[in-house]
Design a protein around this nucleic acid. Structure first.
Lengths: 241, 241
DNA sequence: CGCGTTATTGACGTGTTTCAAGATCTGTGG
DNA sequence: CCACAGATCTTGAAACACGTCAATAACGCG
């Protein structure tokens, strides 16, 4: 891979995601690039933010996957939502933000503070991009609720894979039918309110039906459009335009 | 009920709730009172906002209960969250807000637009109150996810009753151990991802254990504090101060 | 009083969990 | 390059929580 002189040639996942949410001007992109230079790294299985800790400001996930999770005192763990590359974590309108759950790195993870300075500048789309990002987040939470409340294991897995596929797509990290997924079956279980054993068996059923196959760190969707319809996934409306 | 000359004597549930979230000045309270005069009413089982409709502005629920719900095409219904008197519905940072789920009246319901004018006025606490309200909302969503994903039917019911008890309390609508609850068992089932039949049987178990009793439109908690501890409900930290 | 909604019950089916063991993978160090 | 340890995946058998179906009882309202 030769390094190009003109930087914007290969936009980062973050820039690509945010640009899909609102139109960013050159100052915005520059602010993003400069923020990315002050990146921090956290290794897999480590907490990025621990419960009851003070929340840091909004943070952009540059690479790797993370999640918000809540653990009951007897050890039961529920993953509340995933963060994928380009997502903005910890966006909070909370005046005095105290973490009410952990943010944990699921893989090695690199992140940086989300640029704030440019927010007030005329023509900046960053504020809108953050707002859209937050709105999407809530949409994901709501979908997660109906997944957990009203879907079978089979549907839950399929639905989550579709969501991840869409989200990675908007960061330029998925092609039409497949993507890289670093989640273990145990993590999937914690996200979907199931046990590892049952996740395993259901994945086998999905493969046998040729609905989707989850292999070593990759997922292949056999017919994303039809599957999305059968799961009542409305096509995210014209939010991206 | 005789009408008092001096209004603030009996604060509305809305004023009481919002005042608990941030300190409101006289102008804020006046704005609230005046907004309440332009109230609208919707009957039980009717939609307040239907899916794919344009969202109205932020709206304060003055009396009655409502919910956000999502219905799959085969009829399965999941209640995403409840709105109790004093709650602010439809708070959205979304630039071009389109409803992604219904808001339905669970009982007869009265609501009014949330006052906006006073937001920029110096000393107004309304903006902060709305922000806190939104932050609480997200907390409720997250808790709902762990309820659905990792709790048994028994725990789900108990946990939801505790949440409602706390929330009604901050609106001045609950005493130490009990409150009025207009939800049918079918509604509870849709909220908790269970069937009516199983809700019914589990309620009987809860009563038999003297954990809590749900009778005709009232709930009595036998030992809220102990129950909350056993369900890992952290005491909402110092947010209210 | 009668009708629709809501609550209750019983018998039975099934999706998911539990427990426990073994197989496979992955990275690490010798 | 092999051996090893820890993580991850896979499998089977048995238990249980919860769902389904269907019928009846109790409520609440006009």
């Amino acid at each position: 891979m030769t390094r190009m002189r003109i930087e914007p040639a290969k936009p980062s996942a973050a820039a690509s995601r945010l640009a899909a949410l609102a139109s960013l001007n050159d100052a915005d992109l520059a602010a993003l690039r400069s923020a990315e230079s002050s990146a921090r790294k956290v290794y897999a299985r480590r907490d990025i933010v621990s419960e009851r800790e003070t929340m840091p400001g909004p943070t952009i996930l540059l690479s790797g996957w993370a999640c918000r999770a809540y653990t009951l005192s007897d050890g039961r763990r529920q993953i509340l939502g995933l963060f994928l590359p380009g997502d903005v974590m910890g966006l909070s309108w909370h005046p005095r933000p105290t973490a009410t759950c952990n943010i944990t790195a699921l893989t090695d993870v690199v992140f940086c503070p989300a640029p704030q300075a440019a927010l007030q500048a005329p023509g900046s789309g960053l504020a809108e991009a953050y707002a859209m990002s937050k709105a999407c987040d809530e949409g994901f939470l709501l979908r997660h609720i109906t997944r957990l409340g009203r879907m079978s294991a089979y549907e839950r897995i399929a639905d989550l894979m579709l969501e991840i596929h869409e989200r990675l797509g908007s960061a330029g990290l998925a092609d039409g039918k497949s993507f890289q997924m670093p989640l273990t079956q145990e993590t999937l279980a914690d996200a979907l309110g199931l046990t590892t054993v049952h996740i395993n068996r259901t994945i086998q059923a999905l493969r046998q039906d040729r609905t989707l196959s989850i292999g070593s760190r990759t997922v292949e969707l056999h017919d994303p459009v039809r599957l999305a319809e059968s799961l009542d996934r409305r096509p995210m409306s014209g939010q991206s335009g």
